Simulated assay, not measured.
Amino acid sequence: MRALPLHLEAGSDVRRSLEQLALEHQASGFVLSVVGNLSRAAFACPGKTAPTLLQGELEIITLQGTLSPGGVHLHLSFSDAECQVWGGHLEHGTLVLRGADLLVGLLDESPSPAAGATQMRPRVEIATLPGCPFSRRALRMLRTLGIPFQEIEATGGGSVPQLFIDGVAIGGYDALAELHSRGELEPLRGL
Rank of each mutant, 00 (worst) to 15 (best):
S79G: 03
L4D: 05
D108E: 15
F134N: 01
A22W: 01
P148K: 01
I165L: 06
I147S: 03
L145N: 05
A22L: 13
F43T: 04
E82M: 10
L32V: 15
R2K: 15
L139A: 05
I126Q: 04
L54T: 10
Q26F: 09
G167H: 02
W86F: 14
F30Y: 13
Q26S: 12
E151Q: 08
A127F: 00
A169S: 10
L32T: 12
L106W: 11
A117K: 00
E57V: 14
V85L: 07
G47I: 00
G158A: 15
G70I: 00
G29P: 12
T66W: 10
F43H: 04
L32P: 00
H75W: 02
L107M: 15
D108A: 15
G183S: 00
A41E: 02
L58V: 11
T62C: 08
P5T: 09
A81P: 04
R137Y: 07
G190Q: 12
L67D: 12
L18K: 07
V96I: 15
S110T: 13
G116L: 07
L90N: 04
R140Y: 06
G171K: 02
P51M: 09
S110E: 14
S181L: 11
T118Y: 01
Q84F: 09
H75A: 13
A27W: 08
E178F: 05
E57P: 05
E59H: 09
L58D: 04
E153Q: 10
M1E: 15
